[in-house]
Simulated scan of single mutants.
Amino acid sequence: MTTKEWAKTLRIKNPYYQGPATDHFDGTYFFNPGGIPPLGLPDLLRWQFGGGRIAWPKTVTSPFKPTKPARRVDGGDIRVTMVGHASLLVQVAGINILTDPVWSERVSPFSFAGPKRFVAPGIEFTDLPPIDLVLVTHNHYDHMDLATLKALDQAHKPQIVTPLGNDGLIRHAAPEARIAVLDWGQDISVAGIRVIAEPCHHWSARGTFDRRMALWSAFVLETPAGRIYHIGDTGFHDGINYRAVGEKYGGFRLALLPFGAYEPRWFMRGQHQNPEEAVEGMLLCGADYVAGHHWGTFQLTDEGIRQPVEALHAALDERNIARERFPPLSPGEVFEVPTSSP
């Protein structure tokens, strides 16, 4: 019995999105074509109770102090400031962009339990410049923080762009928010920047019974200063999506790529790439430079706090790629993306 037939048998209805079936939506559930679905509860319990998690320090201090960004960055410059995890401020062509913004202390449905922030945000919320555009790649709690989205809407009224099915969740917290909803391959123009939703290999859920009922995506930004490729979370998926965007767009000046939260591999490989795969993805998509994220802020998986950086440096060294081309950004760190190709 197919997933679609099973859903019909149980009369399951998607609470977030209703639309025609496509090559990545069966009428109820979204899926990765030819990909690995998320593992189920027995495997989750096997992982959680199997040991192997390396403890992080009780407190973590970034080597960079929280920064106060410039109001705007113009000309041909691209400036990236790390907030933490997958939250980055991208300043380009006079536009201020936030990716998967999270300022909450926990990434959890509960304020008193769940993964807790180990290091303070690299930008104080009140020090943010005017925010024009917010990209929300999917609805996991470490990427869609409704409290932060509500605060951003109240303070900045940005344009929010997110994949299918996520708008209702956001609107529950911010009823008046400006939200554009995209399927893979669709686009919108915001203040002279074209934003295109592209496939990545992941999944979605806010609870136990809504798995894969909202879409996940990467985003391509076409800006006057060059193309930018942002992925919040992804499994490597044999490099399929990296090759596709590389062929479609002809390379990128900058990619924002995750390289942490990947152990144990038997559980995570379908949904989270490791540092070696992130470096391979950089090459496949033709990125001149990468801002590395998704490490060192929330402990979501088994690896130690510094293991992703050590593995990333080893992978770059093995490929004879200068480490400066793929910095693993810490909260408060600013990456001035070079204007010339390496």
Rank of each mutant, 00 (worst) to 15 (best):
M1R: 11
E5I: 12
A7C: 14
L10H: 08
R11L: 06
Y16K: 14
Y17T: 00
G19P: 06
H24M: 02
F25S: 00
D26E: 05
F30R: 10
P37I: 02
W47F: 15
W47R: 11
F49T: 14
G51C: 07
G52E: 03
I54K: 14
A55N: 10
K58N: 15
T59R: 08
T59K: 15
P63F: 14
K65Y: 03
P69T: 06
R71T: 15
R72K: 08
V73A: 03
G75V: 11
R79G: 02
V80Q: 07
V80T: 09
T81M: 06
M82C: 10
V83W: 08
V90E: 02
Q91S: 12
V92G: 05
N96Q: 03
I97K: 05
I97Y: 11
P101N: 05
V102M: 02
S104A: 07
R106V: 07
F110P: 04
S111W: 15
F112V: 10
A113H: 02
G114I: 06
F118I: 07
A120W: 04
E124I: 00
P130E: 06
D132I: 12
D132Y: 08
L133R: 07
H138E: 13
N139V: 07
N139T: 06
H140W: 09
D142E: 07
D142L: 10
D145R: 05
L146P: 02
L149N: 06
A155V: 10
H156V: 10
I160D: 07
I160N: 00
V161E: 00
P163C: 02
P163V: 04
G168I: 12
I170G: 10
E176M: 03
A177R: 10
I179K: 03
A180K: 12
V181H: 10
L182G: 05
W184T: 01
I188F: 05
S189D: 12
I193K: 08
I196D: 11
C200K: 05
H201A: 14
F209G: 03
D210N: 13
L215F: 01
S217Y: 02
L221H: 08
Y229C: 01
H230C: 08
G235D: 06
F236I: 01
F236W: 14
D238C: 03
I240C: 01
I240G: 00
R243E: 11
R243W: 15
K248C: 02
Y249V: 03
G250F: 11
G251L: 06
L254F: 06
L256E: 08
L257N: 09
R269C: 01
G270V: 04
Q271C: 01
Q273H: 01
N274G: 13
E280G: 01
L284I: 03
L284P: 01
D288P: 00
V290H: 12
A291Y: 09
H293S: 15
G296E: 00
T297F: 04
A311Q: 12
L312D: 01
A314H: 11
D317G: 07
R319T: 00
A322C: 14
E324S: 04
P327V: 03
P328C: 08
P338S: 08
